[in-house]
Computed example of a mutant assay.
Amino acid sequence: MIPALLTLLMCQLAGEAAARALALPLPGPVLGMVLLLAGFAVFPRLVDVVRPVAQGILGHLSLLFVPAGVGVVGHLGLLGQSGLPILLALLVSTVLAIAVGALTFAAVARWTGNTP
């Protein structure tokens, strides 16, 4: 368990350090995830080491939404003042995401010969 946690944390640390040192417009944890993926490709046995800890973390993923919920409750006044623009942004972005997903699916289906 300790080697797996150490692996995950070191990848995140390396990604964070690279993002800050190189002033990349990418979050450090995302770079760390790319490093972890590269580690999995180079050392396939690493997957078996990290899997139990990763499954444990994913099993408790809902706990990671608690800080976001606290942030929403802590800024209810601001949300009340900007409620209409936030609602409009949510609706427009949702419709656009669904449209892009559908168009991408249709394009891939056309390219593979599986037209819907």
Results as ranks from 00 to 15, higher is better:
Leu103Trp: 12
Val100Leu: 13
Leu64Trp: 04
Val73Asp: 06
Gly71Phe: 11
Gly59Phe: 00
Ala99Asn: 01
Leu78Met: 08
Gly59Asn: 11
Gly69Arg: 02
Val100His: 08
Leu91Asn: 07
Pro67Ala: 02
Ala102Val: 05
Ala107Glu: 05
Thr94Asp: 08
Gly71Lys: 15
Leu90Ser: 05
Ala97Ser: 10
Leu58Phe: 04
Leu76Pro: 03
Leu79Phe: 15
Val73Arg: 13
Leu88Met: 12
Ala107Thr: 07
Ala89Ser: 12
Leu63Gly: 01
Phe105Leu: 15
Val72Tyr: 02
Phe105Ala: 15
Leu88Cys: 15
Phe65Val: 08
Ile86Thr: 14
Leu88His: 14
Leu103Pro: 00
Thr94Arg: 02
Val73Ala: 12
Ala89Asn: 10
Leu91Ile: 10
Ala99Leu: 09
Gln81Tyr: 14
Leu64Arg: 00
Leu103Arg: 11
Gly59Trp: 01
Ile86Gly: 07
Gly77Pro: 01
Leu103Gly: 12
Gln81Leu: 10
Leu78Cys: 12
Gly59Ala: 11
Gly113Lys: 08
Leu90Ala: 02
Pro85Arg: 04
Arg110Asp: 13
Leu76Glu: 03
Leu84Ile: 15
Ser82Pro: 04
Gly69Val: 06
Val95Trp: 01
Gly113His: 03
Ala106Trp: 06
Phe65Lys: 02
Thr112Ile: 11
Ala102Gln: 13
Ile98Gln: 05
Leu78Phe: 05
Val66Thr: 10
Val95Thr: 07
Leu87Pro: 06
Ile86Arg: 09
Val70Cys: 10
Ala97Met: 00
Leu76Lys: 00
Gly71Cys: 13
Asn114Cys: 14
Gly74Thr: 05
Ala106Thr: 02
Asn114Thr: 14
His60Arg: 08
Thr104Ser: 12
Gln81Thr: 14
Ile98Phe: 13
Leu63Ser: 02
Val95Tyr: 01
Ala89Met: 07
Gly77Lys: 02
Thr115Ser: 15
Gly59Gln: 09
Val66Asp: 00
Pro67Met: 00
Val72Ile: 13
Ala102Trp: 12
Leu96Met: 07
Leu63Pro: 01
His60Tyr: 10
Thr94Pro: 01
Gly74Glu: 09
Val73Thr: 02
Leu87Lys: 08
His75Met: 00
Gly71Met: 06
Ala99Gln: 04
Ala107Ser: 08
Leu91Trp: 12
Gly71Pro: 01
Trp111Pro: 00
Val108Ser: 03
Ala109Gln: 14
Gly59Met: 04
Ala89Tyr: 07
Ser82Glu: 11
Pro116Leu: 03
Val92Asp: 06
Ala106Asp: 04
Gln81His: 10
Ser82Phe: 12
Leu84His: 07
Ala99His: 04
Phe65Ser: 05
Trp111Ile: 11
Ser93Ile: 00
Ala99Ile: 04
Ile98Met: 06
Val108Tyr: 14
Leu64Ile: 05
Leu58Gly: 08
His60Asn: 06
